[in-house]
Amino acid sequence: MTTPLVEAVGVGRSFRLGGQVIEALLPASFEVFPGDRIALMGPSGSGKSTLLHLMADLDVPSTGRLTWPALGASGRLRPGRIGMVFQASSLLPMLDLAENVALPLLLQGHTQEARERALQALDAVGLGSLADKLPEELSGGQAQRVGLARALVGRPKLILADEPTGQLDHATARHVLDALLAALEATDAALIVATHDAEIGARLRSVWYLSHGSLHSELEVEPAT
C-alpha cells in the first residue's frame, strides 16, 4: 500500500479577530498520495490558502492532527520535501533570478551544485536567459514562473501552489500551468493547486471544493487533453 504524503484527521483552523472567532477551515480529514494532481477550488476567503499553509507546515492547525508519513516529521519538511508557490510574487528583491531559484538548495547546504541546478530549473520554465536579472525587472508572469522554478529546484515530493496564476491574464496563466505540469510530468510528485479558475481545475485529476471553510467534496475528474 502507498504511504500518503499528507494525512489529515479532523484538521481545522480558526483565528481570533477582536472578540470574534473566525473558522477559516472547519475540521476535515483527507490524504494526499504521490502523483496526485489536485485542484483546490472555492471562492475567495473559503479557506484554500489556509489549507495549503497547513499542509506546507507554515501554519499550525487549531484542531485535529496533520502528519506527513512519507515526508518526515513536522518542522523538518521544507525546503527539500515540499515546494511552495505563493499567490503573490515571493522572490527576494535583492537577489537575481538564479540566486532566488538556488536559495532552497543553498538552505539545504547544496552549495556546489545550487547554481547549475537553478539555471536548469530556470531553463525548464523558459527563463534561462534572464538568470542575472532582478525580480523588479520581470513581468508578473515571468515572476510566477521563477517562483515555479524555485519550488521545483529541490525536486520535492509535494508541490503546493497558492493561486499561482491568480494575478495573470489567461494566456500567461496557461503558460505558467503548462510549465508546471511539464516539469512534473516525469516525476511522481503530488501537486495541489489552489485556484478559482475552472480551466485549471479541469486540467487536474481531482478537484476539492471548499466553501466557507468546509471541505465538502472530493471529485475525481478526467484530465483535460
Binding site: L77, P79, M84, P93, L103, P104, L107
Partner: peptide
Amino acid sequence: RSFTILAALGAKPAQ
C-alpha cells in the same frame, strides 16, 4: 516579508 519568505523556504534560524 523577505525574511518571512526565507523562513517559508525553510531557512533555519541560524540561516
